[in-house]
Amino acid sequence: MSKAFNKVKVVADNRRAHYDYAIEERFEAGIVLQGTEVKALRNSEGSIKESYATVEDGEAWLINSHIPEYSHGNRLNHETRRPRKLLLHQREINKMMGAVQRQGMTLVPLSIYFNGEGKAKVELGLAKGKKVHDKRQAIKDRDWKRQQARILRDRG
């Protein structure tokens, strides 16, 4: 059962993650950003398509996420693909680290969003990779549900 996070404004969504991975648990993490990064995110710019999360030295990091330079920034603008620290409780980090090391799971960023307090957050998923036949079955199930809805709508 997944927790519902207070997503007021979704900036970046990793739609491919739900196709490639079976998400088993979700975590909400704060993200350490510089000023121009926040302004770029507020303009709905940013991508997490090729990014991933890792745990190193007891800290969680978001690697390879792309937040473009802020257009009105000066020479103190940020790097676009720098590693960004994620803010989590230590017990959550330990849980993630144990699952990644023992069970071969992957930490996948699912979305970047602003919550009700205006803070930038990252939704992380603890996931297992899907095999090709699992992906095909998911496509069949999705098509069947779409067809069911179409039949019910036409009869109703």
Rank of each mutant, 00 (worst) to 15 (best):
K85Q: 15
A17H: 00
K7P: 07
R82G: 11
R150D: 15
R81D: 12
Y52F: 12
M96E: 14
H18W: 02
K135N: 10
K121S: 00
G35F: 02
I93N: 05
E59F: 12
D154L: 13
A40K: 05
I48M: 08
G30H: 00
Q101Y: 15
D134V: 12
E37M: 06
R16Q: 04
L110F: 10
L88M: 07
G58E: 04
Q148F: 00
G98W: 12
A4L: 05
R42S: 04
M97N: 15
I48D: 13
D154Y: 09
M97D: 15
E56C: 00
F5E: 01
F5V: 08
H18T: 03
R82Y: 12
H72D: 13
L87M: 14
V11C: 03
W144Q: 10
E28Y: 00
A22Q: 04
V55I: 04
R146D: 15
T36N: 13
S65D: 11
T36Q: 08
N77D: 10
D143K: 06
W61K: 04
G125M: 05
E123W: 08
A120E: 01
G156E: 07
P83Y: 09
A127Y: 06
L126Q: 05
R142H: 04
L107Q: 05
K145M: 06
H89D: 04
R81F: 15
L126G: 05
S111P: 07
G46S: 04
Y19W: 01
E37H: 03
E45A: 11
F27Q: 06
R136A: 09
G129W: 03
I151N: 08
L126P: 02
K140Q: 06
I93F: 02
K121T: 00
Q147E: 15
W144A: 15
K9N: 08
K131Q: 11
E50F: 11
E37K: 03
E37I: 03
D154R: 15
R150W: 07
S44V: 13
K85P: 12
E117C: 08
Q147D: 14
K9R: 07
F27H: 04
R142N: 02
I31N: 02
V10P: 06
E117N: 15
Y113D: 02
L86H: 07
D20C: 01
R15F: 07
G118T: 09
R136Y: 14
G118V: 05
E25N: 10
G58I: 02
K7D: 10
A4K: 07
K130I: 14
A40T: 06
G73F: 07
Y52W: 10
I67Y: 02
R146G: 11
M105F: 12
K85H: 13
S44I: 11
Q90D: 05
L126K: 08
V108F: 02
F5C: 01
K9I: 13
K130T: 13
E24R: 13
I23R: 01
R146T: 15
D134R: 06
E92H: 06
Q101N: 12
L110S: 10
D134N: 01
T54L: 11
K9M: 09
R82P: 07
G46D: 00
R136G: 12
E69N: 14
M97H: 08
F5H: 04
R102N: 14
N43H: 11
A60I: 09
Q101D: 13
K121Q: 08
A29R: 05
Y52D: 12
D143W: 04
N115W: 03
W144D: 15
G73Y: 10
T54F: 07
D13I: 15
E56Y: 05
I67M: 02
I31K: 00
V108P: 04
V11N: 01
I112A: 03
